Computed example of a mutant assay.
Amino acid sequence: MRIAGFEFSEGARFQAGASADAQAVGEHLELLRQQQHGELTPEDVLNDAANPNSPLHSFFEWSDTEAARQYRLSQARGLIRAVVAVYVQDDKPAVRAKAYVHINEPGAPHYRETGHAMSQKKTRDLVLQRAWREFQQWKARYRDLKEFSELFTVAEEVERKLLKKQ
């Protein structure tokens, strides 16, 4: 099998000013992989991208101050996502669940306590839409693995039921 071309994956997000030329990026990454005897590492990519003439250069923040800030924001997002709340009710076993969910409201993305977010129609719809998109992306990423075919069949049944409700 050979590669016929390159595109960016659906929903891929890059920093402002990053090149939109997926073909050039893919070809350059393939060249780097070949130069590294078939293996490509993030270190290889970063080293190459440090050259301002590299087609990969625009995908990185080169201000160390801003890069450090962005990295710390990424760490903060990871910390928020890592927290699990233990919910209790009388006469029921404790339930563990994500403490916070991401609400991607236009112009004001933020996190909310999961129970609160799911109790409000607007935020519940946003959370469920995001979950469905992420599941569809996961399904597309692994659709060629026959080991998951039964799961995909069940997912298609659920999708049909959801569409009927709408």
Rank of each mutant, 00 (worst) to 15 (best):
58 S>E: 02
95 V>G: 03
116 H>M: 08
66 E>A: 04
117 A>D: 06
152 F>C: 07
49 A>I: 12
130 R>S: 13
49 A>N: 02
82 A>Y: 14
76 A>C: 14
124 R>N: 09
155 A>L: 13
53 N>C: 14
139 K>N: 09
96 R>V: 07
63 S>Q: 09
165 K>R: 12
121 K>W: 05
132 W>H: 07
141 R>A: 09
82 A>V: 11
150 E>D: 12
35 Q>I: 00
160 R>G: 02
81 R>L: 05
152 F>H: 13
144 D>Y: 07
48 D>A: 11
57 H>V: 02
89 Q>L: 06
71 Y>A: 09
131 A>Y: 04
25 V>G: 00
102 H>F: 11
148 F>E: 03
41 T>S: 14
89 Q>S: 08
58 S>A: 14
126 L>R: 02
66 E>G: 02
109 P>L: 03
138 W>V: 15
161 K>P: 02
105 E>R: 07
125 D>K: 06
164 K>D: 09
72 R>C: 08
67 A>Q: 04
26 G>P: 00
135 F>G: 10
147 E>G: 12
96 R>K: 15
89 Q>Y: 14
157 E>N: 14
48 D>V: 09
108 A>C: 05
50 A>M: 10
88 V>S: 12
43 E>V: 07
95 V>D: 05
84 V>W: 12
67 A>W: 04
76 A>E: 13
108 A>E: 04
27 E>Y: 03
143 R>V: 08
147 E>L: 06
160 R>T: 11
159 E>T: 15
109 P>E: 08
106 P>G: 03
74 S>K: 09
90 D>G: 12
41 T>H: 06
145 L>H: 06
50 A>P: 03
113 E>T: 05
149 S>M: 08
152 F>I: 07
139 K>R: 13
89 Q>M: 06
96 R>I: 05
47 N>L: 15
30 E>G: 10
131 A>H: 05
130 R>N: 13
78 G>F: 10
31 L>P: 00
30 E>M: 15
137 Q>D: 14
104 N>M: 13
123 T>P: 02
133 R>A: 07
145 L>M: 03
43 E>M: 10
46 L>C: 10
153 T>D: 11
49 A>S: 11
149 S>N: 06
84 V>G: 06
70 Q>T: 04
50 A>I: 03
25 V>F: 04
70 Q>G: 08
135 F>I: 15
78 G>V: 07
155 A>R: 12
146 K>I: 06
90 D>Q: 10
134 E>A: 05
165 K>C: 11
158 V>E: 05
108 A>M: 06
78 G>W: 03
154 V>W: 03
151 L>G: 13
29 L>V: 00
118 M>Y: 01
106 P>H: 01
134 E>P: 02
138 W>K: 14
121 K>V: 07
132 W>F: 10
125 D>P: 01
140 A>K: 11
124 R>L: 12
137 Q>N: 15
88 V>Y: 09
105 E>I: 11
80 I>K: 01
